[in-house]
Nucleic acid binder design. Structure first.
Lengths: 344, 344
DNA sequence: CTGAAAGCGCTTACAG
DNA sequence: CTGAAAGCGCTTACAG
């Protein structure tokens, strides 16, 4: 009873040697049998497989990796606390890699350079095959350096260095898409309220929107884009000011779904029918905000999963030597709901 | 020019042998020098350190792990698409493990048992030291089995098996906290609107709320809890019905922030002052919903980071042999805002 | 203080 | 078809 084994003794996981012994073959043969190599007697293979099954043998991927020089592992370094981007991107990456082929280390750097370096070292020590870096917004971010020993792809936020590989949503095109939709539904007096002008997302969406207005031969209602911040409160304030200035306003494009919620509230307060008199749309297609709105909010989806899949694909490409550099812009997608379409 | 090296040849990462050669010592000595072992001549240590620095040597954690029998790695298996719970839990876990000490594999099973098994196998193959399983809601979920070779902690959703270790938010207490706050602010005619009754979260919060009402010598306004679904639309519908039924209603406790948003909108539509005449609160403390509300919404925070830290702690405990079983309930936290407190 | 040797769990030529 | 040997990158007794 006074044995050396403690109550918490967890049995070491079964090893290939255990399997081999149980099956009465050498480790080499066991390895070949399990890995489907040719030149193994069917009976032997069966015995080995059964032995493996019996003791729940799971090959030690670490040992395999150390030989193969590849770990089947990717590091996803995020700065996005809410997981608004990271999780969809992770899912896209998982899909692209093929279920179970690659495992993903997720670390959160919390927009802190020190913590980021820390995580990078840890990931490199674990010999990840590649790195995907997810920013907290679409502003360009400092590169991790070009001398990283593994292919690195910047997702959502591009790297400042053109030699890096970045995959970001095409916010300019998103802005264009939005205006084209409003124009197609017959709107002509369109205003634009957006978030903090210091964000590239705000500026890019506005750029696309203004270009599309010009292409349609229209002018922006309210003289200028109302930049402010990414809040409902700003959406409300700017909507009041826009309505007061432009009496024949018939649509408001909002820089985010959150801002759009503020806009919808004010229109409702002032008894203005949406979408009949003024239609509204946002960006991000954040379901929690769009689906419960009155009416449900039309929005531009940033296609995060596609983004993640593409980022993973580019890690693969680099691994295959098909390295491409520069910023790749990913298309966004219009999702129409009641705030712009009667009866939608 | 027709060499065998392809354009994409990525140099193999530096190895301890490289360092040793460069420093003119044996691999064994290099290892000791770098790992701060005693009995290494200062000069030798310096030469080795410099050599390592020079060629950016990062020790191969896989090789170390294979010897140590520990990988310093934990698997986080989630089913929470939005990352609403997973990311904060991941962050809590990262903190608990100590920055850089442990790395986390994150996989999303998407509430699919097959995919879950798939990920488990992959994680076990990678010899994670432990597993944290995050559910998509607080309903008990099927156990992964008690014969897992590594300690497993269920977070957010408890395991159905009492022999497993689970860490979940105390929704009953959350309900109590909420009512106590409303009562403390002078409210006496309190109604409760909640989400889908099939969710434990809805039932538990109601249980806590009713108990607190009784303790305060009050009755639930509106006869019964209005269970429905987790949407703003339901919040609106139920609020209308509650207001129509209870003329002297002075507070509405909503089962989630989303429902509460619906409630706030209806109160505003009907010109009822919040919080002076009717105060409102929700659960989850989802900042995107609470901070922009009119007025900002008081809510109960589920303390996800604390939950994650605790889950990680319990993985540690199990690793140390201090294995505890059963469901651990974690306290929630009241966050007061304008919807229950004048001038807050 | 230093290094040769053994070994972690696996795979891959290479003999038999 | 099978197995002994070498080796991946590292660490840890054990001699010197």
């Amino acid at each position: 009873m006074s044995g050396i084994e403690s109550a918490n003794a967890r049995p070491r996981a079964a090893t290939l040697r255990d399997v081999a012994t149980l099956a009465g073959v050498s480790v080499a043969t066991a390895s070949k049998a399990l890995n489907g190599r040719a030149n193994v007697h069917p009976d032997t293979r069966r015995r080995v497989t059964e032995a493996a099954e019996r003791i729940s043998f799971t090959p030690n991927t670490l040992a395999q990796a150390i030989l193969a020089g590849q770990t089947g592992t990717v590091g996803l370094l995020t700065n996005d606390l809410e997981g608004r981007f990271s999780l969809p991107i992770l899912m896209g990456a998982e899909d692209a890699f093929g279920a179970g082929k690659m495992s993903v280390f997720l670390c959160d750097a919390r927009d802190d350079a020190i913590r980021e370096q820390h995580h990078i070292r840890a990931l490199l020590g674990r010999r990840v095959d590649g790195l995907i870096v997810v920013g907290s917004n679409t502003d360009p971010r400092a590169t991790l350096g070009l001398d990283l020993p593994v292919p690195t792809v910047y997702a959502y936020a591009p790297s400042t260095d053109e030699q890096d590989c970045s995959v970001v949503p095409d916010n300019v095109h998103a802005g264009t898409l939005a205006i084209e939709h409003l124009v197609a539904t017959g709107k002509r007096r369109i205003g634009h309220i957006s978030g903090d002008v210091r964000y590239a997302a705000a500026r890019d969406r506005a750029t696309g929107a203004l270009a599309a207005l010009e292409a349609a031969g229209l002018e922006l209602a309210g003289d200028r884009v109302r930049f402010g911040d990414w809040t409902e409160a700003w959406g409300r304030a700017a909507t009041h000011s826009l309505l007061d200035q432009v009496s024949d306003l018939d649509a408001i494009l909002c820089g985010s779904d959150l801002i759009a919620r503020g806009t919808l509230d004010v229109l409702r307060d002032r008894g203005i029918d949406v979408p009949a008199r003024v239609s509204v749309m946002g960006f991000d297609n954040w379901e929690i905000l769009t689906s419960g709105a009155r009416p449900p909010l039309t929005s531009i989806d940033m296609n995060f999963e596609t983004l993640g899949r593409r980022a993973a694909q580019r890690v693969f490409d680099a691994l295959d030597g098909k390295s491409t550099v520069g910023v790749e812009l990913m298309p966004c997608r219009l999702v129409v709901r009641g705030s712009t379409a009667q009866g939608a």
